[in-house]
Design a protein around this nucleic acid. Structure first.
Lengths: 335, 335
DNA sequence: CTGTTAGCGCTTTCAA
DNA sequence: TTGAAAGCGCTAACAG
């Protein structure tokens, strides 16, 4: 016979005792698997309500071997692009009774693998966005992370469903747009050096350069935040470029601000572009020409695949979204 | 003797068996409570590494009676103001080994109480931002939610630490600023009707009106999103007001956009203000005059109090932040 | 139909 | 210094 539990909460045995049935019966009633007489069920429910009993989620999880929680790890929770993904992922998962546990790997750049494994063990599955991890690291870790869905890492070797963005094609579209407008000297404000999506953008730019053969691309050190954009403004002005392609919208917005402070007019003196199309890109001054990335679809698509993985259904094929060019006010014809 | 576990993961007994010790010893070694011979500890660690053993977090939580996770519930995960809080809360909690479980109550407006109780039971404590819940509902729920920290709800009756914003004072400052600039006809684009913070803003406006006695405030239906702001543009124009105070920055940004489409110039024809000072408020066109709210401090302050509550330390007093007026380009002197 | 029993994997007294 | 055993609260075979 069980006595009072450590915490104040009512336990299943207390309800059982009070209702004069076994814990198993209470369990069945609570989970809708009860097949006996209606009055027994009613009594159990009445007692449960009376004692305001609620099953201990932890104990239930341990017995069932599942937590009904998934983990979501991103490099920076403060970036609107990841926030949009979190918002849609959380809503989608909630519809199926799952909650999401979040973590920001920026805090612990070095031991990201540990962070990721730790949070994965607290949940049933993981949605990982780890642009800075090498393919080798990721492959080594993958088995300990499954069920796993990757965002922005189409790494066939890893064998995990993935949703990604064709950064190379996207930036190519952007370059084409600028080229058509007469620009020939580009400055690319790079993202974090270790970022794989930054490498894809560089590759896209290289390809474009080889294709048209009459543009020059100067690469300027940047980063992933607005501050990095502000900091790059001087270098952009000094580069002589007429078009500045920022790593992402955050950087572009900072750059817009930095250039304004330097008295450089956008788009008259230099055109500026972003990447992501965060909700505010349409409200900047001037409005930002950028590449629209379907963050909501990344979030819902990630849940869709994770769910399929968990329940053993067939998983939808990997998705590669091509960003959509969104021409706004920050780009114009080169003089 | 235990056999192979349900899932593929190594268990403590497997490590114990392999190392020729008891599970208790492995447990002690893994948790740094082992006082025996060093070679025993080394052997255990070696075996653990060999089998890549990692303690099952769920089982550990059940035995310990704590999850090392806290829940964070907000009305809308897509709002930058809550995202900023989440970001700082998550970082602060992570420093103490806690993870955060998120939920967005927008999905399930009606059964918010259930949502909140459910997610609370999956964690050790809760940070709740529930502007639409009535004081009565909140009081009734509070005991089932403790340890609990409230954001934007300084409800003494509830008896939970709180961090809040003095909305009334803030909007009073804003009104004063506009009044000083010569405005006498205001339009307030209201937030959700059931929102307590909306009521505080209204109260602040009322107080201001009584104080100066020469302004007229028309209340226009709005909401909490950019779309609501866009939708309110026509009514703002039709109101004859020279200054439009939006419920929050999101609404203000939408309003800016809506007014621009109607050909109404800001701030020449009408001044516009927001509330929150989300990161992008400084980048809108024109830049947005708003009230700066320390979202990061709300997040870290919430964790600070929650932690104290959990470990039984003395909890810092309730915080009431007075928003700081941030005058930018969207407001100007009335003609 | 319902109860008994044996776990889920870990921690922790208690005893040796 | 170490191990046996009980227990955290719930679920699910298996009996009856």
């Amino acid at each position: 016979m069980t006595v009072s539990p450590r915490s104040g909460a009512t336990t299943i045995s207390q309800v059982a005792a009070r209702a004069g049935v076994s814990p198993a019966t209470v369990s069945r009633v609570m989970n809708g698997r009860f097949l006996g007489a209606a009055d027994v069920a009613d009594r159990v429910r009445a007692v449960a309500a009376e004692l305001s009993y609620a099953p201990n989620h932890l104990a239930r999880s341990l017995a069932l071997g599942q937590t009904s929680a998934i983990a979501f790890v991103v490099p920076d929770l403060a970036n609107p692009a990841f926030q949009a993904m979190l918002s849609s992922l959380s809503k989608a998962a909630a519809r199926d009774g799952y909650r999401v546990l979040v973590a920001d790997s920026a805090e612990s750049a070095s031991d990201e693998p540990l962070l990721v494994q730790e949070i994965r063990r607290r949940s049933d599955a993981l949605v990982l966005c780890a642009p800075r991890m090498t393919d080798a690291e990721l492959s080594g870790l993958a088995d300990s992370l499954r069920p796993l869905v990757l965002i922005n890492r189409a790494t066939p070797a890893v064998g995990a469903p993935s949703l990604s963005i064709d950064y190379a094609a996207g930036i190519g579209d952007l370059a084409r747009h600028l080229h058509d407008a007469g620009h020939r000297r580009f400055a690319y404000i790079a993202g974090p050096a270790s970022s794989s999506s930054n490498r894809h953008r560089l590759a896209g730019l290289d390809a474009f350069q080889r294709e048209v053969d009459d543009v020059r691309v100067e690469v300027i050190d940047g980063g992933a935040t607005s501050e990095d954009g502000v900091a790059a403004a001087g270098a952009v002005r000094g580069s002589g470029a007429t078009a500045a392609l920022a790593f992402n919208d955050l950087v572009a917005i900072g750059l817009l601000d930095g250039l304004a402070r330097l008295g450089v007019r956008v788009p008259d003196d230099v055109s500026v572009t972003g990447f992501d199309d965060i909700p505010f890109a349409r409200y900047t001054s001037p409005t930002l020409t950028t590449l629209s990335v379907p963050h909501d679809e990344l979030g819902t698509g990630a849940w869709d695949r994770l769910r399929a993985l968990v329940v053993g259904e067939e998983v939808a094929p990997d998705a590669v979204y091509r960003p959509r060019l969104e021409v706004r006010g920050s780009t114009s014809t080169s003089r």
